[in-house]
């Protein structure tokens, strides 16, 4: 049911774990539904995501979409990260079963939550 790419990201997740010095952290989902994603980003002064990490409680697709999302935003600007769509994550994974599309939505939301947290921190620090 899963593509090779999904299984590869599941068994060899990229950027797994917390990021030292992260300045944006987002967590989405809930345990009741069986999926929680936590996303850590470290954004430099130029607004570039220098480092990214994730932690996920969830199924194979949840872990694979988290992993893929981190790869897709690493080295990108926060605006580019905000533009990441779940469809792009699904495409990069060469497809997901229909009942797993919600995992990719969660990955998109986790990235957005981390960026929003970064922006909030930045505004707070600047004020």
């Amino acid at each position: 049911m899963y593509t090779e790419k999904v299984l590869d990201h599941f068994s060899h997740p990229r950027n797994m774990g917390e990021v030292q010095g992260a300045n944006g952290v987002g967590m989405v989902g809930n345990a009741k539904c069986g999926d929680i994603m936590q996303m850590f980003i470290k954004v430099n002064d130029d607004g570039i995501i220098e480092d990214v990490g994730f932690k996920t409680f969830g199924c194979g697709a949840a872990i694979a979409t988290s992993s893929m999302a981190t790869e897709m935003i690493k080295g990108k600007s926060v605006d580019e990260a905000l533009a990441l769509s779940n469809a792009a994550v699904v495409e990069a994974l060469e497809g997901l079963p229909p009942q797993k599309i919600h995992c990719s939505v969660l990955a998109e939301e986790a990235v957005r939550a981390a960026v929003e947290d970064y922006q909030k921190n930045k505004t707070g620090a600047g004020a």
Partner: peptide, 11 residues
């Protein structure tokens, strides 16, 4: 506890 069944099965 703290992990999800489908990922256990896959692994």
């Amino acid at each position: 506890k703290y992990i999800e069944g489908e990922s256990i099965l896959l692994m």
